[in-house]
């Protein structure tokens, strides 16, 4: 009973703060609602007996990434909003389409049946401890995806540098 209430609370908070993150006009406010979202995600992980993931969620996402975001936000000081042309002009058409998609996505959910379970039942994870089990899988079975993810981070760094370099050189030219 308690777990159900806890789950419902987390789910509602996640959806609510996710919506707020999109709706808020002030970027700092939407970042803060993302922070709330991350904490409740961590709550869900805890409920699933994944303490390691919950800790990582809070330390890495909430602690590091969001704080970095906030720093950037304060440093860059966005004055004007980026505006892009709509691809579809009529607002009503897009509303009808998105509501339709939303409904059909909800409508398919009752048919959802849980598939085969993997080879890590709860007892095995508890015996091996969460972190150890995760590490074992990550560095043996999933070594390839893990390495690719590392490469993606490298590209993010290189790409960020390239784009930032471009900006600074153009401002120098202008001044």
């Amino acid at each position: 009973m308690f777990t159900l209430i806890f789950f419902c609370y987390c789910a509602v908070m996640i959806i609510g703060s996710g919506l707020l993150a999109i709706i808020m006009r002030n970027p700092v406010h939407s970042l803060l609602s993302v922070l709330v979202l991350f904490f409740h995600m961590a709550g869900l992980y805890l409920m699933l007996n994944a303490e390691f993931l919950a800790a990582v969620q809070i330390i890495v996402y909430a602690g590091a990434i969001l704080v970095l975001y906030l720093f950037v936000m304060f440093l860059v000081n966005i004055r004007e909003e980026l505006k892009m042309d709509r691809f579809v002009q009529s607002a009503w058409l897009s509303r009808i389409i998105s509501i339709g998609i939303g409904f059909s996505l909800i409508a398919i959910l009752p048919a959802f049946v849980l598939g085969e379970k993997g080879h890590w039942p709860l007892e095995a994870i508890q015996k091996a401890t969460n972190t150890k089990a995760l590490g074992q899988e990550l560095y043996s079975t999933y070594i390839l995806p893990f390495e690719i993810a590392g490469l993606i981070l490298l590209i993010a760094v290189v790409g960020g540098l390239v784009l930032a370099k471009r900006n600074s050189s153009t401002t120098i030219e202008k001044s």
Binding site: P145, I148, A149, I152, I155, A156, G159, L163, R166, T170
Partner: peptide, 23 residues
């Protein structure tokens, strides 16, 4: 999983390449 990560690897690089044009 590999399919998705490969896709992101490709896409992220291409986003940067598109935006590289100076000025």
């Amino acid at each position: 999983m590999v399919l998705y990560l490969g896709l992101e690897l490709m896409a992220l690089s291409v986003y940067c390449l598109v935006g590289m044009h100076k000025g």
